[in-house]
Design a protein around this nucleic acid. Structure first.
Length: 477
RNA sequence: CGGAAAAUGGCUUAACUUGGUAGAGCGCUUGGUUCGGGACCAAGAGGUUGCAGGUUCAAAUCCUGUUUUUCCGACCA
């Protein structure tokens, strides 16, 4: 492995925030627009999102969900129907007040999330238990007027999917909430090589209007947590506010049981901050827009480019996403470029290799270079390498997560671990929002999720009262 | 939203303190030689300095406002 450092990218240890920004821009994932918090998703960055979307969309459909599209604008009065919901979202809404040159009768909110729109629609179309469940999803962007913005992690506009389902029973809705949480978790593992910590949010952290919020939390390279997706059980809260009733089997009116769940382009931020290194992005093979880049060496020597294209054709036919870099840059330049963009495998092919009937394949995650025969096994070898890389990346991330998951019993330990070791800190908690706020004030750490660990007489690290839960705390993005 | 810093060809930047024709490196274009970790030669193109005002004979430079970005807090997916 070369020790060459790309000068364009700040090293992670020098300044992690700067490193992150450098990677986003130099890997050409995004660019800034002239409106604060609204970014341009460049082709390479958007392609990652498309791959995430494709994978999830398939799973949503397999589990009986249908895609729909709701309007972007919500009448203010509609957003205000559910008290907790409006209280949670009102401070960060962008509002349209003019149509053409005239003031609007009623201001229209640009959707920060679409619960209210789905509720209004569901209330109209559902009459009987025979109409249930309704399991809709939409892919769209939402707008939340954020004060501090960062590419992919927190934007004023971001791309996401929001699933909204209604059911005839609490049991079925709760099942749905957990099913979608599991789909998120397994997709993160199988597609993005991201291990997730999952659990229930506390009262303070849960979604505005939800009865229960489940979360998937990832641990970034710098020891901070990132909420990467949520799945909510709403009970009948919205149903009552929006009058979503159905006639059940006993011929009685009943309110529907509801869920919603979403993941966003924030997942791209997680991929960058979990897998990346000082040479740039490192993309998990299954989500990488380009899985293999072929770099011809001495490409103007007869037969070299032909061979490169021949390999490309073979790999493409095998369903791999592959590109030949036939630009007239030097090979070294191409290597660096491919590394910066996180392309999983790089095939080097030159006159010497062709003579030997071989090629060199370099792995992005660890830089290991090996020779492979240019024979019928090449595709199989590459697929093996890609799977191996995926597992190595997941295992490395999981190791990092496990090493930064610390159980403590006192406030002193809590502060010490948080400051010196970073990562998730597991601590007993009495269940009081008061204590959560105090912990946040003292340490800047927030509760990320409640674990399912049993409590055996431990005391709350904040107030010393009987603990009710063991909670994962962390500093977070 | 508070505190700090920044904005000059595509990128990194010089000139700003002390006002006087915006300079470089990389990248880009054309031609040629190269090619196993960011190659080289030659000839070109590209900026009026984030935006808006003000001061001045004269503004990248001084003043005011504003927008965007970065970092630190508060808020939040």
């Amino acid at each position: 492995m070369s020790t060459l450092k790309n000068e364009a990218i700040c090293s992670m240890d020098t300044d992690f925030a700067q490193w992150y920004t450098d990677v986003c821009r130099k890997a050409e994932l995004m660019d800034y627009s002239s409106v604060k918090g609204f970014i341009i998703y460049r082709p390479y960055g958007y392609a990652i999102w498309e791959n995430i979307r494709e994978c999830l969309d398939k799973k949503f459909k397999e589990t009986g969900h249908e895609n729909v599209y709701m309007p972007m604008l919500i009448p203010t009065s509609l957003l205000q129907k559910e008290a907790d919901h409006v209280e949670g979202f009102a401070p960060e809404c962008a509002v349209v007040t003019k149509g053409g040159l005239d003031d609007l009768e009623e201001p229209l909110v640009i959707r920060p999330t679409s619960e209210t729109l789905f509720c209004e629609h569901y209330a109209k179309v559902v009459n009987s238990y025979r109409d249930l469940p309704k399991k809709y999803n939409q892919w769209c962007s939402v707008v939340r007027w954020e004060k501090t913005t960062r590419p992919f992690l927190r934007g004023s506009e971001f791309l996401w999917q929001e699933g909204h389902t209604i059911h005839a029973s609490e049991e079925e809705a709760r099942e749905e909430t957990l099913r979608m949480l599991d789909i998120y978790k397994t997709t993160c593992k199988d597609l993005l090589a991201l291990p997730m910590v999952t659990g229930l949010k506390t009262e303070k952290e849960k979604f505005a209007g939800a009865e229960a919020t489940y979360t998937i939390e990832a641990l970034m390279h710098d020891g901070k947590a990132l909420q990467s997706g949520t799945s909510h059980y709403f009970g009948q809260g919205f149903a009552k506010a929006f009058d979503m009733k159905f006639l059940n089997k006993e011929n009685k009116q009943e309110y529907v049981y509801q869920t919603s769940w979403g993941v966003s382009t924030r997942l791209i931020g997680a991929v960058i901050m979990v897998h990346g290194d000082d040479n740039g992005l490192v993309l998990p093979p299954r989500v990488a827009p380009t899985q293999v880049v072929i770099v011809p060496i001495r490409q103007n020597v007869d037969g070299v480019l032909d061979k490169a294209y021949e390999i490309e054709k073979t790999l493409k036919e095998a369903g791999l996403r592959v590109k030949v870099d036939a630009s007239d840059k030097s090979p070294g330049w191409k290597f660096s470029e491919a590394e910066m963009r996180g392309i999983p495998l790089r095939i080097e092919i030159g006159p010497k290799d062709i003579e030997e009937g071989k090629c060199v394949i370099a792995k992005r995650n660890d830089g290991v270079k090996e020779k492979y025969n240019l024979d019928d096994n090449l595709v199989a070898n590459i697929n093996t390498l890609l799977d191996k890389m995926h597992n190595e990346m997941y295992d490395k991330a999981l190791k990092h997560l496990n090493e930064h998951m610390t159980r403590v019993n006192t406030m002193e330990e809590f502060v010490d671990v948080l400051e010196n070791k970073t990562g998730f800190v597991r601590a007993p908690w009495c269940g009081d929002t008061e204590c959560e706020l105090k912990i946040k004030e003292q340490t800047t750490a927030t509760s990320r999720c409640i674990t399912d660990q049993e409590v055996h007489g431990e005391k709350c690290i904040c107030c010393g009262k009987e603990a009710k839960k063991i909670v994962n705390f962390a500093k977070s993005y």
